[in-house]
Amino acid sequence: MKLEHAEMRDEGISLNASTLNEENIMSTLSLVLLIGSITSLALLASYLDAKFQWRLNDWMNGECSNPFVKAVTDKQQKRLAEKDAQIESLMARIETLETIVTEPAYELNKKINALK
């Protein structure tokens, strides 16, 4: 009887060790899947932000109420203002060059220099 009791105790211990090992594997698998899912979600949100300017990352961080409203950021507004200023300055330079080239004195000076 003591022998049977000892065998049952040994089987119970091995059963518990087996169960613990399976639970450990499941918890590890669950952890890996959870981290992978969160990472995939973050990467997908970043991709959609970059492609469609949906602001999903801002929405997940609580910085905006509607992620699908396209927003012009301060950085984009600054770039647009710089481009507009550059275009205006280039237009002014072109107008100045046109007035110089179409001036009769410029053509006369060019002909004189060609004779020299």
Results as ranks from 00 to 15, higher is better:
L115T: 04
A92T: 10
A45P: 00
K70I: 13
S40N: 11
L31A: 05
L48T: 06
K110A: 13
E107Y: 03
S30F: 02
Q53S: 15
L33H: 11
E4T: 00
L34H: 14
K2A: 10
L90I: 05
F52E: 15
L20R: 10
I25F: 11
I25K: 14
I13F: 02
E82M: 13
A81G: 02
E23P: 04
E107N: 14
L3G: 03
E88T: 02
E103S: 11
A81K: 07
I94M: 12
L80P: 05
E22F: 15
L33E: 13
M91Q: 09
T99D: 07
S40R: 12
Q76I: 06
T28W: 14
K75W: 13
E22Q: 15
G62I: 09
A50Y: 11
I25V: 07
K110C: 06
R9I: 01
R55P: 01
G62D: 11
A71E: 13
G36M: 00
V72N: 02
S18H: 14
H5P: 01
L33R: 07
I112V: 12
S37G: 12
D84F: 06
A6I: 08
A114H: 08
I100D: 11
E103A: 15
S37W: 06
E11M: 11
H5Y: 05
G36C: 00
T28G: 12
L115A: 02
M26F: 13
G36A: 03
L56Q: 00
E107R: 15
N109E: 09
A42R: 07
E22R: 07
T39S: 12
I94K: 10
G36Q: 00
N61W: 08
T96R: 08
K51E: 06
L80C: 12
I35M: 05
R93D: 10
C64A: 04
Q76K: 00
E63P: 12
A45H: 01
L80H: 05
D84E: 10
W59L: 07
H5R: 13
A17D: 06
S14Y: 02
A17F: 03
S30I: 06
T102A: 14
